[in-house]
Amino acid sequence: MLTYEPDDTLAHRLDPRSKLAVQIGFAIAALAHTTPAGLVASTLLAGAILVTTRVPLWRTLWAYRFALVVLAAGPLVTMVSLGSPWVEPSDGVGPALASYRALLVLLVSAAYVRSTPIRDSRAAIQRTIPGKPGRLLSTGVALVFRFLPVLQRDLRTIRDAMAARLGTERSALERASTIGILGLSRAFTRADRLALAMQARCFSWNPTLPHLSFSRLDVPAFVLASALVLSLLV
């Protein structure tokens, strides 16, 4: 699974706030420049980020395999039409470029995930947004990152089990409500166990968070992030 791994890469030594800035800048730049030339530039930058963070490419792609299926389906579906000429490859070019762009943003977020402990993300949000809302928001965002793959697997298990019992033959309403009931009750069971575990570990409004400080290394990261945002104007 895609998760934080201790290491000594450049990205591991950066402050989480500058990594978030680069992530945001990259997403903005990639969404703004969907031309082939823009995508080549995004690819080179994403490649550089992945290499410096030592993200294992194949393992990451494998972790995102279901996303890849969805990303590949978009362009394929638009190429097919009901009637002559049945398949029109040129229709798929736009969606294919958009899917590829989404994949790049996904891979760059893998670099953030691999190089940043969840506690650091939490500290970064908490130090940017003040008060109790900031505390709940920072912890909550970290929990969403942590539980997203777990609940994706839950939903897949539920759908596989339904398919094995010929659930695919049932009406759309029955399928949607079954997925809803089982998905939500599984999520709430996990949430109640999580709440107990958080209380056992003294979940508090004033935790001692890791000390964050900017170093000289963060300057180029912020310059890169600003440059990416400013590329909107190009």
């Binding site: 279901f66 969805v70 909550g140 994706q152 998905g183 209380q199 979940f203 508090s204």
Partner: peptide, 29 residues
């Protein structure tokens, strides 16, 4: 230590997991 109230922790954990479920549901088409 200023502990978070038990009911708030339960509601908060459920809200966070429901947010993750919302993200997972993006894949169920």
């Amino acid at each position: 230590v200023d502990l978070v109230d038990g009911t708030v922790v339960r509601q908060f954990a459920r809200a966070a997991l429901l947010a993750a479920l919302m993200g997972a549901a993006a894949l169920v088409t």
